[in-house]
Design a protein around this nucleic acid. Structure first.
Lengths: 284, 284
DNA sequence: CACAATTACGAGGGTCGTAAAAATG
DNA sequence: CATTTTTACGACCCTCGTAATTGTG
């Protein structure tokens, strides 16, 4: 029977034009490739090459065989990839969230409940997350809005309240509360990968500039050593403690005070019962 | 790399359910199949089976792999078939004809001109033949009507004249000529595989019965030993000689006296020049 | 105890690489 | 003379089969 490795060798020849070059690329000796191609011809019962004494090229059969060999090989590669991807997906729990804070507790919780599983997480917007949930890309998603859909199970998971973080000398540092419009136009330090908060900032403070910082450590250094305002939240403070040398002022806009909802498909609710129970016991 | 033989083995296991049975069907020992499947799993980096001590079944990965393996294998088989079919078609000249008589000279002529080629011939009706010519299924076709088409080269190849073959005692045996309508309703011996003549008989003598005989020898025996009328033609007589103990009467209907045309595609005319020349020199 | 799967081990087939030959430009 | 293909020959890898082990119904 025809074998995959022969098709790979045939394609290499088709690509490189000579047996010598193809053999080199395949990390194989010429003679081995020469014989392998002879054997392929014998197995097909068909000549694939026109041979002159020191020259060999594909004939019409050979060109046709190359076309088909490409298809077979692509299909075989596809098989490997898909089976491996499926296996991975079976060993992975994917959580999608609209913001990072809920993941800080969710991921460790899932790790504890399913120690043998890989936990993967994504920050995406609501539409993408819902689509991903329905396509089984995510087992769970976390949104900052309630979803009423007959296919979807939705439970409140807690709240997050945004604060402005200012150096004590800042003119607004004495305020008890503040609105986005009061600070629109100022420049802010901002972390990247903050989900919907990013969109919210751009929307509510269109005149501001944001100095986006990818790295956690760099961000903290900048906060410490600059007078630039930035944002924090009750959940950040709960995780990291109160920031030193900073005054925090609540942001009063309703959009800055969100509730999170922990969401899964109804059809997986049964299987996820343990998770839902634990999530309920550990509200943010 | 994954190999075809492993996919065949996997499919055999999927089909027969146990390694023992599958190994038997594959003419292979169990241990060999067992190890082969272990190796397949190792190459994919994925488990394909759930193993108990003396039981092994496909897991979800395995079921998915089986699906893909089927596709790969079908594609590989398809590759073999198509390449082989293409090779055959390159070594074969196919002639289509509306009647057998022109083939009696055409086939030997082509065999002589192309001794290394296989000559294959078909009897079909005009539409099928024209379609086959355009689809390159036939390199040549022979019709009993002239074709005027800019893509098609058409040359007259000769004529065939139909005769009624009667035992001397038959009432019509003294006639100098006869029409189909004169004999409609009688029973006739008829050869099979006579192309358009068959349709013509059914059309012109709708009230007759035809005792169709597949075998040449049986047909001749029946002709000799029965008083049933049958048909012959100038080309049959030219080939086989005058029939013994029979009187032949010309059939005067214009449809019973046909001209044949030797036809190929214009685009192949150049390549077929030798054939066309020889056909022209050996008119029927 | 029949049957199924796995492990161990030795045999054999097939592919590989090296070396040599033949041909071309 | 460098490059290419093919043939010859010996080495080695890999798959195979036999035999033995473990486990199940």
């Amino acid at each position: 029977m025809l074998e995959i490795y022969q098709l790979e060798q045939l394609l290499a020849f088709a690509k490189y034009g000579t047996l010598s070059k193809a053999a080199e690329e395949l990390h194989l000796s010429q003679p081995a490739l020469s014989r392998s191609m002879q054997k392929l011809e014998a197995e097909l019962g068909v000549t694939l090459f026109e041979r002159q004494k020191n020259k060999i090229i594909l004939n019409q059969n050979g060109s046709l065989a190359v076309e088909y060999a490409e298809r077979v090989l692509n299909q075989a590669k596809d098989m490997m990839e898909r089976v491996q991807a499926f296996d991975r997906s079976q060993r992975t729990i994917s959580v999608g969230s609209c913001a990072p804070a809920p993941l800080w507790s969710t991921i460790p919780l899932l790790s504890t409940l399913y120690p043998e599983m890989t936990i993967s997480s994504d920050l995406k917007n609501t539409e993408v997350l819902l689509q991903g949930l329905k396509n089984r890309i995510y087992q769970f998603i976390i949104l900052h809005e309630e979803i009423n859909d007959s296919d979807i199970h939705c439970m409140k998971y807690g709240e997050e309240h945004l604060f402005l973080s200012l150096p004590p000398a800042h003119p607004l540092a004495e305020r008890n509360g503040i609105y986005f419009e009061d600070i629109d136009g100022e420049s802010f330090l901002l972390r990247s990968r903050i989900g919907f908060w990013n969109d919210l900032c751009l929307k509510k403070m269109p005149a501001s500039h944001f100095l986006v910082q990818d790295d956690q450590f760099s961000f903290e250094e900048l906060v410490k050593n600059s007078a630039l305002p930035c944002f924090t939240s009750d959940l950040v403070i709960k995780r990291d403690g109160t920031p030193t040398n900073r005054v925090i002022v609540p942001i009063l806009d309703p959009e800055a005070n969100v509730s999170y909802y922990f969401i899964c498909l109804i059809e997986t609710k049964k299987k996820m019962e343990v998770v839902l129970h634990e999530i309920g016991r550990h509200m943010l």
